[in-house]
Every structure is written in structure tokens, then in C-alpha cells.
Design a protein around this nucleic acid. Structure first.
Lengths: 105, 105
DNA sequence: GATCAGTGCAACCCCAGAGTTGCATGTTGT
DNA sequence: ACAACATGCAACTCTGGGGTTGCACTGATC
């Protein structure tokens, strides 16, 4: 997972409301209307957030009769974590090398 | 690292300019003015971003004479990755349990 | 001590996006 | 067919934040 793919995911994860939506979905799949009953925001606001989350692959729509339930894709979270860890490790190595050179001066 | 601590870090990481700043700092510590020479934004804009990054512990100021160089804290990245992975794993387990029950119906 | 580079602060512009209301469009059940 | 519920779409408000310009301040350097 490249760094460009990562940024929108972080942008999506950088919102409290979306975290509460993800947390609510963590208790089981739910529709936008169902979530609107539990959270202090409108159904339409939730629908927008779900669209954002779906866009970055953190959530997946599942049609159940006339309603659209959403399901958390946990794998995307762990994959994002892997990508972040990789970037961090690279920077750590590079910076360690730089400082080693700097000490040698 | 709790989920509330995590959200501001993601918000900080959810901006392209901040990533380019972090990438530039990955080549070695630098001041806001120095970064302004490499990036297509003003020094003041960079200063704001550095303040945000410092706020969430991704970067650390180091006074060198009359200038203030900033240094990437790679550990914060890996720690954030750990936290994210933990949350993902918890959701995976919980959702797996829920679906197991659902299949039993 | 005069100059110059680096930083800090404040006011301002502008737009993305979080949230709302309102209405139209399905889709299910009776 | 009709009522009820769920979703989708559009327009609107408004705040936050990314970016800018301008100026004041501080610390080196000659």
C-alpha cells in the first residue's frame, strides 16, 4: 500500500463522528437509518460519512431487503497499520543513518 | 495508546502538505524557512503545519542558534500503527464472533 | 551598532466539508 | 393499490482550517 493511497484513509480516520460510526458498526452491521437512531446526527450526515468510509475501503455496503447495511472491513485497518509501520521504519532507518554520518563529522 | 489520542494524529496525517513536510524532514532535520525553499508553500503555512505535527507528537523542535530545526519522531508513527492494528484486531474478533452467532440462527 | 536572516504573531481570504432541511424515489408488506 | 419505511438527491448554512500578506521581534554577524 503506497503513501498516496494512505493519505485519504487517514483523512477519513481523522474525524470523531466517523470513528463513532465505525465503533457502532463494530457491534454489528447496520444501516444509515439505524445508526441515526444511536448517534446524535442526522441520517443524511451519516450517509455522507459512510460514503467517505466506503470510498477508502473501510466499509462495505450490503443490501438486505429494502435497506442497505454497512459492514466494517477490519482488514483495511490492519493493512493501513502495516503501511504506516513500514513508512515509520523506513524513516527510522534513514534518520539513523543520517545521524550516524553527522556524528562522524 | 487510546482511540481518542489516535484521532488527532490521523487528522494530522490526513493532509498531503504535511506528508511532504514529513518526507522532507525524513531527509534530515530542517527549519521552517529551509522547508519553504523546497516546498511550494509559504514559510508561515509550513510553520502552522509544523505546529500541528508537534501537537500530536510527530515532530520535535530543536533550537540551533537562531533557527528552529524540526526532527521527525519515527517512534510516534510506529506507535500509531500499533494502536491502529490493535483496534482493527479487536473489531475483527468481535465481528467474527457476531457472525458466528448469526450463522447459528 | 547597523544590518540581515529567521522566527513569531495577527488579520484576512477562501474553500472544503460537516451538518441541516426538504423533497423525490424506491421497496416492502398488507 | 396504498401506506409506511428506507434510501437518494439537491440546495443551503456555517464553521474550520489551509494559505496568504504584512509587520514586529529577536538573534547573529560584520
Amino acid at each position: 500500500m503506497t503513501s498516496e493511497t494512505l493519505v485519504p484513509v487517514f483523512a477519513a480516520l481523522g474525524d470523531e463522528t466517523r470513528w463513532s460510526i465505525l465503533a457502532a458498526l463494530g457491534e454489528g452491521d447496520a444501516s444509515a437509518s439505524a445508526l441515526a437512531g444511536r448517534l446524535p446526527v442526522t441520517r443524511q450526515a451519516i450517509a455522507k460519512h459512510l460514503a467517505v468510509l466506503q470510498e477508502v475501503g473501510l466499509v462495505e455496503p450490503v443490501r438486505v431487503g429494502r435497506e442497505v447495511r454497512f459492514r466494517v472491513i477490519g482488514a483495511q485497518l490492519t493493512e493501513t497499520a502495516r503501511g504506516l509501520e513500514t513508512v515509520g521504519a523506513q524513516w527510522d532507518r534513514r534518520l539513523a543513518a543520517i545521524r550516524e554520518i553527522a556524528e562522524g563529522l
